[in-house]
Design a protein around this nucleic acid. Structure first.
Lengths: 342, 342
DNA sequence: TCACTTATCCAAAGCGCTTTGACAACTCGA
DNA sequence: TCGAGTTGTCAAAGCGCTTTGGATAAGTGA
C-alpha cells in the first residue's frame, strides 16, 4: 500500500493525503479524519526511502562500533548504551544503524555513511585521548555526539560523559579516609580517554594527601576478568602489597576477587576494592547490599541522553556544541573496610 | 557529489556512469576505468536511499531486540552476535538497523519495518518455546533467520542454533561419570527455548543413568550474577545439597562461585560446576586453564553464519528454509572434580 | 558495397514521497 | 454585486538512482 494507491481509494490527491497524514494545517479536519482512518485501515506507512529521498533526511542515526583486535571497553558497555539510545530513537521515530568496523576502516566507515546518506547523525563510541574522529566528522560535516571525551581534541564538539576524574578522585579519597596508603589502580588501557581521566583523578586524590603515585601500583590493561585476576596476583606478590585496589571495571573486579580469595585473603577485611560500576542491566552489582563498593553510573541513561542530544543537534545544526557531565554515585558495599593494621 | 554531477564532469550520461560503476558489460573497459577513477577521486558513493527506491532493495538487515522488563538473556550475548553479523554485513555492503522494543510492541515493530521498507530481512533474537513471531513474519512476508529455535513452531523457517540439548546432556553425563548423583540445574527462564532444551538434555542424561530429576534441584530464573548466587545459596542450604551444579550462563556461574566460596567450600573439590560459556569476546572463561568446565560455543561465529544465511535467503527467497545446528565443545576446566565421598 | 551484428552510449521513465505554486470554491464586507 | 481574502484541494516538479528501449558508430561476412 503506497501513497498513490491510498489516495486513489480515497478519491483525493496524493498531496492532500500526504498533508493530512503529516499534520499540515491546509487540510480540513473532516478529510484529515477520513484519511487517517483509511491509513490505519490499510496499514499504510510511508516508505522511508522515498520520504528520505524527498526530504533529504534519513531518519536514522549511525553508531560506529570499533572492533579492535583487542576487544576494548566498548563491548560490555555497548549493549546497554544502545538500549538507552534505542528508547530515545523509537520515541522520535528514528532508526538506528550499526556499523561494526575494525579500527583501521573506521574513518572510511564515517565517510561512507555520509556519502551514502543512510544517517542524519552519528554517535561516536569509545573516544581515545587523542582521537582523530572528531576532526574527521567536522570535516565531513555530519552532526555527532561523543559518548565520552577526547582530552586532546582542539575543535569544539558535543559530548556526554561521566565525570571519571571526579569519580576516581572520590573513590581514592574514600580509601585514603579509611586509612589505606598503598592503593593500587587497575585501569583500562590508558589510550582510552576515560582511563586517562580516571588515573588523573586517582593521582589527584593521592596528591591531596601528600602521597606520590607509585608506578608499581598502577596497571593499565584491557578490562577483562583474566586481566583483573592476573594484575591482582602480581600486586599481591609485591614485597609491599597494596591494602586496597581501585579497578576500572566491574569485570576486572571479579577477576581481582578471584585472585584475592585464592590468596586466602578476605575481601573487605584484609584488602579493599572499589570498582567502577557501569551498571549494566544484566550484570548488577548485588542487589540490597552491593558486593563491591563502587562509583556507579547508568550507561543506559547515558545512551538515552546522548541520543536526545544528537536529535537536538540534528534539528538545529547551528547550535553551539552541547556538553553534559554526569556524576557517578559512590555506593558503599561490602568490599571495603578500614586499612588493616600492619 | 551525485551521479548527475559526476556524469557531467565526465561528459558521459548517467546511464553509462551507473553501469560502469556497477560492473555491467555494456560499457568498454576504457570508460569503466575512467569512470572508476573519477568516482574515487570525487569520493562518489551512490545515495542508498535513491538506489533503494530504484531497486526496491534496502541493503539493510533488521535486528529487533526485545527488551523485556526483565533483561533476559539477549543482552550479554547480543553484543557479540551483532559483532559477528556485522562482519558478514560489511563484507556484503549491507547495513544493520537495530530496533529496540519492549515485548509488547514487538509485533508492531516488525510490521513497521516491513511497511517502511527499511530492511530486506530480519534476524529474530531470543525465541521462546512458543513464539508468535515466526508466524507473524511469515504473514508479512519478510525473509528472516532465527537465532535459536521455537520448539513449538509449526511453520517451517530458517534458523541457526547451538545444540543446547546435546550440550547439556553431555555436561550432565560428564558429571555423572565423575560420580555425581545430586546435580542441580540453574537454568535461564524456561519460557526461552534454549533453556527449555537445556533442561531436556539434563533430564535425558539423568534418565540414561536411571535417575529421576529432582524438582528441588531444578531452578529457572533470569541469568544474572545475583540470581546465580541466590540459587546456589538456596541449594547449599538443602538437607541434601547437590554435589554439582549446571548453570546456563557464565554470569550465573560467577554468582554461584561467590556463594560457594562464602560457604567455605572449595570449587572443583567440594562441589563442581559446569556452565555454558557463550564465549563472549570480552568476558573469557580464563585463558590457559579455563576457570569453569563449560560447554562452549562462539556467539560471534553464530552471528556471522546467521547473517550469511539471511543474505542467502534474500538473494533467493524461494529456497527451502535452511537450518544449521552448531555443536558446543565440552571444555574441561578447574571447576569440576570427582564427587566427594559422603 | 550492403545488410547485419556487435559494441557503446544515451534519453527518459519510474521508484514513492514531499513540496511549490495554482486554482476553484466560498465567505464577507462594502 | 463585486473584489479581496480564506480554505481546501490538486497537478507537477524534484529527490538520486536504476533500467528499459532505443540510437549511433564500428565491425563483419558475402
Amino acid at each position: 500500500m503506497n501513497l498513490k494507491e491510498l489516495s486513489e481509494r480515497l478519491g483525493l490527491s496524493q498531496t492532500t493525503v500526504s498533508r493530512a497524514l503529516n499534520g499540515f494545517p491546509e487540510v480540513s479536519e473532516a478529510t484529515r479524519a477520513k484519511v487517517q482512518a483509511a491509513a490505519r485501515h490499510y496499514n499504510y506507512r510511508p516508505n522511508m526511502r522515498a520520504r528520505g529521498l524527498a526530504t533529504g533526511r534519513a531518519m536514522a542515526i549511525g553508531h560506529v562500533i570499533p572492533v579492535s583486535s583487542k576487544h576494548e571497553i566498548v563491548n560490555p558497555v555497548f549493549a546497554d548504551f544502545i538500549a538507552g539510545a534505542g528508547e530515545t530513537y523509537s520515541g522520535a521515530d528514528y532508526d538506528m544503524v550499526l556499523t561494526v568496523v575494525s579500527d583501521a576502516d573506521e574513518a572510511d566507515a564515517y565517510r561512507k555513511l555520509r556519502a551514502k546518506g543512510t544517517v542524519d547523525g552519528i554517535i561516536v563510541h569509545g573516544p581515545k585521548v587523542t582521537d582523530s574522529r572528531i576532526a574527521l566528522l567536522h570535516e565531513i560535516g555530519l552532526p555527532f555526539v561523543v559518548h565520552g571525551r577526547a582530552s586532546e581534541a582542539t575543535l569544539p564538539y558535543s559530548w556526554l560523559d561521566v565525570n571519571n576524574r571526579r569519580a576516581f578522585e572520590r573513590a581514592t579519597s574514600f580509601l585514603l579516609d579509611l586509612g589505606h596508603r598503598r592503593i593500587a589502580l587497575i585501569n583500562g588501557l590508558e589510550a582510552m580517554d576515560f582511563a586517562y581521566r580516571r588515573r588523573r583523578g586517582y593521582e589527584a586524590a593521592l596528591a591531596t594527601h601528600g602521597l606520590a603515585p607509585d608506578p608499581a601500583l598502577m596497571l593499565s590493561e584491557e578490562m577483562t576478568e583474566a586481566n583483573g585476576y592476573r594484575a591482582t596476583r602480581r600486586l599481591l606478590g609485591l614485597a609491599a602489597p597494596p591494602t586496597a585496589l581501585l579497578t576500572s571495571s566491574y569485570i576486572s573486579a571479579i577477576g581481582a576477587r578471584r585472585a584475592i580469595e585464592e590468596h586466602g585473603l578476605k575481601l573487605g577485611r584484609d584488602i579493599s576494592i572499589v570498582t567502577h560500576d557501569d551498571e549494566l542491566s544484566y550484570f548488577r552489582n548485588g542487589e540490597d547490599v552491593p558486593i563491591f563498593t563502587a562509583t556507579r553510573s547508568s550507561v543506559r541513561e547515558a545512551g538515552r541522553q546522548a541520543a536526545a542530544m544528537l536529535l537536538d543537534l540534528i534539528a538545529d545544526p547551528d547550535q553551539t556544541p552541547q556538553t553534559r557531565l554526569l556524576e557517578a554515585a559512590l555506593i558503599v558495599g561490602a568490599s571495603t573496610g578500614p586499612a588493616p593494621r600492619t
